[in-house]
């Protein structure tokens, strides 16, 4: 087999077959479900949850992960924070002509590993090869299917005093990606947090029946996600600045670049809002897993009549936090 992907790999002929056999089937295993044009999977009782996401991260490999790992964990997490148990994934690849086969194999293996860890099956896939310049290396789309095992409320009932928990340090993924692009002139030892969170979140909901909402603060970071929760449900959330866990490496890089860690993307973190009585139980449960070991309670629901996000600085001054306006750009001085 040639060492790079060419257009014939995507034309449905011999080379396509070879690619599927050598790369995808080898890694993902040949499930009974995937022998047909469409995957046939049994229907469960109750409701199903479906989500889809496209991954176009640059660079494709970064400290702590790769586009492959991300494509699995990202979609698994979207299902898991909705309270669904992720079961099946499909994946679509758009590959640029000339892409190294070796890299493709690594990426596909990362996907297989992460899927195994998360306990989900890859049941259908598609590969397209585009001409050089038609895309940037490789794009992946994954669609996830999960089942809702418990009846989850569609409108959570928040109460004043509810705990706001974050499952670990913030901004790791954002800084790992930014610094691994190599154009920052700074290096950092920060690794992306990208990881599937379904096991951890199952633990959380197993110990508490009073989890109000779970979200993963990806693009736009903690602030953007919490502003959305606050506005959507008309609650005031007040964070305690000093309680928010941030790695020194992330803080340092942010100081240099003029970024705010509360707006940086995370790919392996969840926000859990839970009744105060159960807060400690949830913290204890998720801290037992590596992906939740740095979890902290970072704030509270302080009002249920006005939708806003506040942060209390160490000086005891409260200020409002807002969505990111525009893109974050490095500053001059």
């Amino acid at each position: 087999m040639s060492q790079t992907i060419n257009l014939a790999h995507g034309d449905g002929g011999e080379l396509t077959h070879q690619l599927i056999q050598d790369v995808f089937v080898k890694a993902f295993g040949n499930n009974e479900e995937s022998k047909f044009d469409a995957a046939i999977i049994p229907v469960q009782q109750g409701k199903i949850a479906v989500t889809t996401d496209s991954f176009v991260v640059k660079p494709l490999f970064f400290p702590g992960g790769s586009i492959g790992k991300l494509a699995i964990s990202g979609t698994v997490n979207d299902l898991a924070v909705s309270g669904a148990k992720p079961l099946y994934l499909t994946c679509g690849f758009v590959i640029e002509e000339g892409f190294a086969l070796k890299d493709l194999k690594t990426i596909v293996q990362d996907m297989a590993d992460e899927a195994k860890k998360a306990g989900v099956l890859l049941v259908a896939g598609d590969t397209k090869v585009v001409e050089r310049g038609g895309c940037d290396g490789l794009f992946i789309n994954t669609t996830g299917i999960g089942v809702l095992t418990k009846e989850t409320e569609t409108v959570p009932s928040f109460e004043v005093g509810d705990d706001v928990i974050i499952s670990g340090t913030l901004g790791d993924h954002g800084i790992a990606i930014l610094t691994s692009r190599g154009d920052l002139g700074i290096k950092s030892a920060v690794e992306s947090d990208c990881a599937a969170l379904n096991t951890m979140l199952e633990k959380a909901t197993a110990v508490s029946k009073q989890v109000r909402i779970m979200r993963d603060p990806t693009r736009g970071g903690l602030t953007t996600t919490l502003v959305e929760i606050a506005e959507d449900f008309g609650v005031t959330i007040t964070l305690e600045e000093n309680a928010i866990p941030i790695k020194d490496g992330v803080r340092g890089a942010c100081d240099l670049l003029g970024y705010d860690p509360l707006y940086l993307a995370n790919e392996g973190k969840a926000i859990i809002v839970v009744a105060h009585d159960d807060g400690d139980k949830v913290l204890e449960a998720i801290r037992q897993l590596p992906e939740g070991q740095d979890a902290e309670c970072i704030g509270k629901v302080t009002d249920t009549s006005k939708g806003q996000l506040l942060i209390e600085t160490p000086l005891g001054v409260k200020r409002a936090l807002h969505r990111l306006s525009g893109v974050m750009l490095p500053r001059i001085c």
Partner: peptide, 19 residues
């Protein structure tokens, strides 16, 4: 584990300064 608090933003230090 929570990271060690930066002394410069430790409320016990800065609140009295503010006062």
């Amino acid at each position: 584990m929570r990271e060690i608090l930066n002394q410069s933003s430790n409320p016990e230090i800065i609140k009295p300064m503010l006062e």
